[in-house]
Simulated scan of single mutants.
Amino acid sequence: MPRRCDALGKAQADGWTCVIVTNGRTVQQEAKIRDTGLDQLVQGWVISEDVGHKKPEPEIFQAAAATVSPPCRARGSSAIRRTPTSRAATYSVFEACG
C-alpha cells in the first residue's frame, strides 16, 4: 500500500482532510479499514450502514463532511477507475465552511 500511503500523506501535507466514504456493513468495512492500516492514515470514515445512505446518494457525503473540523460541505463527486480490474471508486471534493 505504499503508493496509497504516499498519496494520502501528500494530500494531508497539502492541507486536505481525508475521510473514507464506503458502502457496506459496518463490522466488515471497519475491519477492512483497520486491517489495511487506513485507520492510521485518514481522519475518519463513514459507512453506509451507519448513516442509512449509500454512495452515490449525497447524504452519505454530507455525513462525511460533518465529521471533520472545521465543518465543510460536499462540493461534488465523480466516479473514477483506479485500475482496469477494480470497481469504480468515488471521490468527492469538499470545501471548508468556516
Rank of each mutant, 00 (worst) to 15 (best):
A96F: 03
I80M: 14
V93A: 10
P58G: 02
G9C: 05
G52F: 04
W45A: 10
Q28V: 10
K54I: 12
C72D: 03
P2H: 14
N23W: 06
H53M: 04
V19E: 00
A96K: 10
G52R: 06
T85L: 08
T17W: 00
I80Q: 13
T22C: 05
Q29M: 08
I60L: 05
E95L: 06
L8G: 02
D39G: 14
F94P: 01
T36S: 15
P56I: 03
A89R: 14
E49Y: 04
C18N: 06
F94L: 12
E30K: 10
I20A: 03
R73C: 10
I47D: 01
V93N: 07
Q62N: 09
I80H: 13
I33A: 04
F61D: 00
R87H: 10
S86M: 11
V93R: 06
Q62S: 13
R25E: 15
T90V: 15
G98Y: 06
A64I: 03
S78Y: 08
R3P: 10
W45V: 01
V46T: 10
R81G: 07
K55M: 02
A96L: 14
G24M: 11
S48C: 11
Q40G: 11
R81Q: 15
T67W: 00
C5D: 13
A96P: 03
F61V: 04
R34N: 01
S48W: 01
P84K: 09
V68K: 01
F94M: 11
A79T: 10
A11Y: 01
P58D: 12
V21T: 01
R73D: 09
V42R: 00
Q29C: 06
R75K: 10
P2A: 15
R81N: 14
I33W: 05
C5G: 12
Q12C: 03
A74D: 14
G98E: 09
G44K: 08
K54V: 13
C97M: 12
V51L: 09
L8P: 00
G24H: 08
A89V: 12
F61M: 10
S48A: 15
R4E: 15
A96H: 05
T90D: 13
D50Q: 12
E59A: 10
G52Q: 04
T83Y: 14
D50R: 09
T85H: 08
R34K: 13
D50T: 14
A96M: 09
K54P: 01
A74W: 09
G37L: 10
D35C: 09
T83R: 11
E59Y: 05
S92P: 06
T67F: 02
A74T: 15
D39R: 03
A11F: 04
G15H: 07
C18I: 12
V51W: 05
T26I: 02
E95C: 09
K32L: 14
R25V: 12
F61Q: 04
Q29H: 06
D14T: 04
W16H: 06
L8Q: 02
S78G: 07
Q43Y: 08
R4N: 13
A13M: 08
E30N: 12
P2G: 11
V27R: 09
P84V: 11
A7F: 08
V93S: 08
V51Y: 05
T22G: 05
R3Q: 14
V93M: 12
G37Y: 08
S77W: 13
T90F: 13
V19S: 03
D50V: 04
I33K: 02
L38G: 03
S92N: 15
P71R: 01
